[in-house]
């Protein structure tokens, strides 16, 4: 079974997809991720909400380093990473599936899970990543 590597950032739906756990500030009419204890703009209370799982690439890079939780570089020598703007105005950064040359600013992407290890109960520990909309998993 898939479980988040840390609680409070996203949940995994019964279908196995990630759902981002955010906050909404009625006073500032602004969404945030991850969840805030108070609105950082108005300092007023915020409401829990769930955010879109699709957005557009704001920026990207290819990092030549081992993947999180590993000592060995991935095939291709590293991994993609991106900042993504969601329709709610939230910007999120996360790994990006694919290869150097696949990505351009403004491309639509969707949120997916990525396994980074296993817990003591043999659950798959997952973090979030993005992949180009329509790309094969």
């Amino acid at each position: 079974m898939k479980v988040p590597v840390e609680e409070g950032y996203f949940r995994i739906s019964p279908e196995g997809s990630p759902v981002l756990l955010g906050s909404y500030s009625p006073a500032a009419k602004t969404y945030f991720w991850p969840r805030r204890k108070r609105c950082p703009i108005s300092m007023e209370a915020v409401e829990d909400c769930e955010l879109s799982t699709r957005g557009e690439i704001y920026s990207w890079t290819f990092v030549v380093a081992p993947w999180l939780g590993s000592m060995e570089k991935a095939a291709g020598g590293g991994f993609g990473a991106c900042q993504v703007d969601l329709p709610e105005g939230v910007r999120i950064q996360a790994p990006l599936e694919g290869s150097m040359g696949d990505w351009t600013i403004g491309q639509p992407v969707e949120l997916v899970t990525r396994t980074v290890g296993e817990d003591e109960q043999h659950n798959e520990l997952c973090t979030i990543a993005f992949r180009l909309l329509g790309a094969a998993s």
Binding site: E6, P34, V63, A65, L68, G117, T127
Partner: peptide, 17 residues
């Protein structure tokens, strides 16, 4: 690195963005 949400990416990625 111990897997965590905060360490999901390396600092080098941020300035590359």
């Amino acid at each position: 690195r111990r897997p965590s949400m905060e360490s999901n990416l390396l600092p080098a990625a941020f300035f590359a963005f």
